[in-house]
Simulated assay, not measured.
Amino acid sequence: MKYVSKILPWKTNILITLVILLALNILNFYGVYTNRFYFLKPDNYIFPLLSTVHFLYLYVIWFKIKEDELPDPKMRNIEYALYAIMVVYIFKIYDSVLTLTSFPELVGHVIPPTFKPMALLMLVLYSLLPIFTISLFWYRRNYVGHYNFEDYNNNLNIWQ
């Protein structure tokens, strides 16, 4: 994993993750079966709401690496929330696989020609998101530091 930082620097990883999240937030409203966008379905707003935590984590990790700061409890809480959101990302991968594999069952129905390319694009983006997120955790551990608050609080001297 140490050669990954030479191939994919942390800034590039954050920017790619940002682009993936923005694309998935837009594509989350897209219906692959109908080739339309659905903005009035409440289910379509779950992923964009959860991705705000991811956007916040991207900002925090960018700031911490740029300013060479130590991790703090707020950053830890955001990262732990992102661990839980990773379950939603895994579910979206599963849902995308089910959507893509449902194509042979729909032979007698009118399916838009964009079904396969869009479903495949969404599957690839949803699959890349956990990979880049896990690598962000690795970058946080290597560039910002571990969450060792007992030692951090013992060495903190507010008079200096």
Rank of each mutant, 00 (worst) to 15 (best):
Y3L: 13
S5R: 12
K6D: 10
P9Y: 06
K11Q: 15
T12D: 03
N13D: 12
L15C: 10
I16A: 06
A23L: 15
N25S: 10
N28F: 01
F29N: 09
V32K: 07
V32G: 01
V32W: 01
R36D: 01
F37D: 03
Y38D: 09
F39K: 04
P42A: 14
P42T: 14
P42S: 14
D43T: 14
N44I: 06
N44W: 03
Y45C: 02
I46P: 02
L49Y: 07
L49C: 10
L50G: 04
T52Y: 09
H54P: 00
F55L: 15
F55N: 05
F55D: 02
L56S: 08
Y57H: 10
K64N: 06
I65D: 05
I65P: 04
I65T: 13
K66A: 12
D68M: 07
E69C: 02
L70S: 12
P71Y: 07
D72I: 03
P73Y: 11
R76F: 12
Y80S: 07
Y80G: 00
L82C: 15
M86H: 11
Y89D: 07
I90E: 03
K92T: 06
D95V: 01
D95T: 02
S96E: 00
V97Q: 09
L98E: 10
L98T: 09
L98M: 11
L98Y: 03
L98S: 06
S102F: 07
E105G: 08
E105Q: 10
G108M: 01
H109K: 13
P112H: 05
P113W: 04
T114G: 01
K116C: 10
L121Q: 10
L121I: 15
L123P: 06
V124C: 04
S127Q: 02
L128V: 08
L129M: 11
L129W: 01
I134V: 15
F137C: 01
F137L: 06
Y139S: 00
R141L: 07
N142S: 11
N142D: 08
G145L: 05
H146S: 13
Y147S: 01
F149N: 06
F149V: 07
F149L: 05
Y152S: 14
N154C: 09
N155W: 07
Q160A: 00
Q160T: 05
